[in-house]
Amino acid sequence: MAVLRCFSPDRPVLGVVEIAEEIGLHKSSVSRMMSTLEAEDLVEQDPISKKYRLGLGLLSVTGSLLAHLDVRRAAVPVLTALSAETGETSSLMLWDGNASVTVEQVPSSHPVKHSSELGTRYSTVESSSVRIFLANMDEAERRAFLKRNSGAQMYGRLAAGDVDGTAANIGQTTADEIGVSAGVHDHRGNLIAAILISAPRYRVDDERVTHLRDACRAAAASLTQRLGGTPAV
């Protein structure tokens, strides 16, 4: 384990001598360990430089963890930080096949706030989190949803205003509320959740909407990283 922890994004390729110096063992001992790790596909050796990098065999070890990682647990510190930064309610939304569902929430500290019960479902295209999920569906699935919910024309108009991976609902569902959402991806790049910021409309002007978009996008990127994914550039 000490050998494997020597590798990092900043140091993806290492030689036996470098590893031996870092973990405090003789290079002959490290060389034997590297041979064992290579046999298990946990590291691979460059045939020219003879240095090592992490191997694809690690995916068989980490894949199960990444696939079953509790997104709610991972989201709590991200939502807490987001609410502290923006002063507004932040929520984690999951897709149940026909609606965006609130599964975790950190309410605003303001006396006047917008929040919802856990389990609240949103299924209209006016909802920002719904559009995040719709944008990542294949065309057939999206068309079927829009047909069921009679939202094709409205979706086209609203989606045109969704920018840089975020969607905004400026009073479309409730006149006195705004919502801003961004998508969360897993280690395979699949959309698995959305982060939603909800706020009273009276304290959010155009400049504030831009700030909430940026904050929501950054929070979604942070949660994506916590889940082993790579945020969209």
Rank of each mutant, 00 (worst) to 15 (best):
A2Q: 13
V3E: 03
R5A: 05
C6S: 11
S8F: 12
P9H: 06
R11A: 13
P12F: 04
P12T: 04
L14T: 00
L14Q: 02
V17H: 10
A20P: 10
E21P: 08
I23F: 06
L25T: 12
K27S: 14
V30I: 12
S31E: 00
S31V: 01
R32Q: 06
S35T: 00
T36Y: 02
D41H: 05
E44G: 01
D46H: 02
P47H: 06
S49L: 03
S49W: 01
Y52Q: 01
R53Y: 07
L56I: 03
G57H: 01
L58C: 01
L58Y: 01
L59E: 03
G63K: 02
L66Y: 08
H68Q: 13
L69R: 10
L69S: 14
R72I: 11
A74Y: 04
A75C: 11
L79P: 04
L79D: 08
L79H: 06
T80D: 09
T80W: 15
A81T: 07
L82K: 01
E85S: 11
E85F: 05
E88K: 09
E88S: 02
T89D: 13
S91N: 11
L92M: 07
L94G: 09
L94T: 09
D96G: 13
G97C: 06
G97W: 00
N98I: 08
A99E: 02
S100Y: 04
V103I: 15
E104L: 08
Q105N: 08
V106F: 09
S108Y: 02
E117I: 12
L118K: 08
T120L: 14
Y122C: 04
I132P: 03
A135Q: 03
D138E: 11
E139F: 08
A140H: 10
A140S: 05
A144T: 15
A144W: 07
F145H: 07
K147N: 11
K147D: 15
S150R: 12
G151M: 05
G151A: 04
Q153Y: 13
Y155I: 03
G156C: 10
G156Q: 15
L158I: 02
A159L: 06
A160G: 15
A160V: 10
V163S: 11
V163N: 08
G165M: 03
N169L: 12
N169H: 14
Q172F: 15
A175K: 13
I178F: 08
G179I: 08
S181V: 00
A182G: 10
D186P: 00
D186M: 08
H187R: 03
H187E: 06
L191A: 00
A194M: 11
L196T: 11
A199F: 09
P200T: 11
P200M: 12
R203H: 14
V204E: 10
D206Y: 06
D206R: 14
R208C: 15
T210L: 11
L212H: 13
R213L: 07
D214H: 15
C216N: 10
A218M: 13
A218H: 09
A221C: 07
S222M: 13
L223G: 01
G229E: 02
G229V: 00
V233W: 07
